[in-house]
Simulated scan of single mutants.
Amino acid sequence: MWKRISVAAVLSVLAATAAFAVSAMDKETLIVGTSGAYPPYEFHGQSGDLVGFDIDMTEAIAKKLGKKLQWLDMIFDSLLPSLMANKIDLVSAGLSATPERAKRVSFSSPYEISYSAFITRVDYQPKSTDDLTGKTVAVQIGTVQETFARALGNVEVKTYQKFDECVREVALGRVDATFMDIPAAKAYVKAKDFDGKIAIAFNKQITGADKAIAISKENVELTAAVSRIIEEMDKNGELQALRDKWFNE
């Protein structure tokens, strides 16, 4: 049997539900999602703790906000769904603020221009994406690199959960190339496991979208506060100091 529900009753339920929803700005500890296999942006140091450019930058932002951080190391393509489901408050993972992603989440002010480097074995050195025609390219699933590779139309695309898996496939000769942000590519080329096996073939700006921190569209106040701090850090040299620390070049 159906019962009529009054407007007052509905509003009462909504108000009770809203009471459980806590604004991120009201929290003492913000939960930050990242994907810790992307040096020098975020990776696990010798102690096992997360370190890197994004880690230091986000910790500095949290300090200026008067917040503590809890880091969650996640698979990259689960970051935005987790943010949209309010399981995390921020995503700091070398994320490009593309128009497509901006339909689902908000982005802070940008903190870095995004350029990619193509990695191949040392005995194969293409000079452009045209030279990759008919080749197999490894990409991390859910990244702007995956979107770009599929749009090329002249390569076979293989997806992996992490960029280090993509690099390993290149080193083993199972794929012809992979690509990622230039600082990360340089870090992998210098890594002990890949030294002398892989090289950077060429660089390319694959998207006009720069890197930014992702925040739920519901948290307008947090987005504004994080953006303001990033802009201040850019003006006062703090961001450049972090670039000098982690990127070296």
Results as ranks from 00 to 15, higher is better:
residue 194 F to K: 03
residue 14 L to M: 09
residue 209 A to P: 05
residue 220 V to D: 12
residue 30 L to H: 07
residue 89 D to T: 01
residue 47 S to E: 11
residue 219 N to Y: 14
residue 199 A to V: 12
residue 165 E to P: 07
residue 211 K to F: 12
residue 160 Y to V: 06
residue 51 V to K: 09
residue 25 M to I: 15
residue 80 L to V: 12
residue 46 Q to N: 13
residue 54 D to C: 10
residue 141 I to E: 15
residue 174 R to D: 10
residue 126 P to N: 04
residue 90 L to R: 04
residue 241 A to S: 13
residue 77 D to C: 08
residue 166 C to E: 10
residue 177 A to Y: 04
residue 249 E to H: 08
residue 184 A to M: 11
residue 244 D to Y: 00
residue 202 F to I: 03
residue 203 N to Q: 14
residue 232 E to T: 13
residue 164 D to K: 07
residue 108 S to E: 01
residue 47 S to G: 09
residue 248 N to E: 15
residue 186 K to H: 06
residue 197 K to D: 05
residue 139 V to H: 08
residue 127 K to P: 10
residue 35 S to F: 09
residue 133 T to L: 09
residue 246 W to E: 00
residue 147 T to L: 13
residue 13 V to P: 08
residue 37 A to T: 13
residue 186 K to S: 00
residue 110 P to C: 01
residue 172 L to Y: 13
residue 182 I to V: 15
residue 9 A to S: 15
residue 118 F to L: 06
residue 88 I to P: 02
residue 84 M to H: 11
residue 94 G to V: 01
residue 135 K to V: 00
residue 155 V to I: 08
residue 76 F to P: 09
residue 42 E to F: 13
residue 95 L to E: 12
residue 92 S to A: 12
residue 165 E to A: 14
residue 85 A to M: 09
residue 222 L to Q: 03
residue 12 S to H: 12
residue 1 M to I: 13
residue 107 F to M: 06
residue 130 D to S: 14
residue 220 V to N: 10
residue 76 F to W: 15
residue 241 A to I: 03
residue 144 V to L: 11
residue 42 E to M: 15
residue 120 T to V: 04
residue 206 I to H: 00
